[in-house]
Amino acid sequence: MVEVFAVASGKGGTGKTTSTVALGMALSERYDVTVVDADTGMANLLFHAGLSDAETTLHDVLADDAPVEAATYDRFGMTVVPCGTSLDGFRDADPDRLREVVATLAAGTDVILLDSPPALDSRTAVLPVVLADRIVVVLQPTIPAISDGLKVQEYATTYDTGVAGLLFNKVRESESIDRVAEKTERYFDGPTLAAVPESERAREARRAGRPLLAHAPDCAAAAAYRRAADALTVREGSPGDAADRFRSAVVPEQL
């Protein structure tokens, strides 16, 4: 089985990469998980997963200079496909090859998480959302973040991608998150998976180049990510179906 999730937000700064890695680690207790840095223009997954010295990255694969296998690394119980940070790498990468990369990875894993660009302004930025089966929307309880999250959802559903759920992140105590989450859910097609408190531990983890769940597994934020992973029901699908789907044009014909 394989299900592909795009972890998405309309804006940067919501803690999307921290969330992708944390969800990945939490899900890896039950599933074989592959995490891909699909934010090819502003890669930072490598810094979160202790892979800043990775020699071969998704950029090389997208430039057709390396096979996918050369850019996969086993870290913290997951398979991680980092992206490089050089501008040259970004320039030479052909985003359309991401489709093929996902298809190849789909054959050997249960869950693929695509850390997606925090924007909707280009084909490259939207592609991961198009490729995914469902999105996980990372939100802060602020008007701009919710409003951008709504836009991501509408793009996703227009392109026939479902909504797996909402993840509120960097939540402060003073924010009445239960009420905000309840009201927010009315406009989204998926439930709230968890509300993750703002956490100094998450910043420390990022500085240490380790996932939050490895750095501070007992903190409140880590517990919230585990709850989110538990709330996420991974759907059955066969790798063959997925591979075919990704290799063909994925967008419904009515568009």
Binding site: P141, T142, I143, I146, S147, E175, R179, K183, T184
Partner: peptide, 9 residues
């Protein structure tokens, strides 16, 4: 009523 809730209403 917070600004976020007013927005959501």
């Amino acid at each position: 009523q917070s600004a976020v809730e007013a927005f959501l209403d």
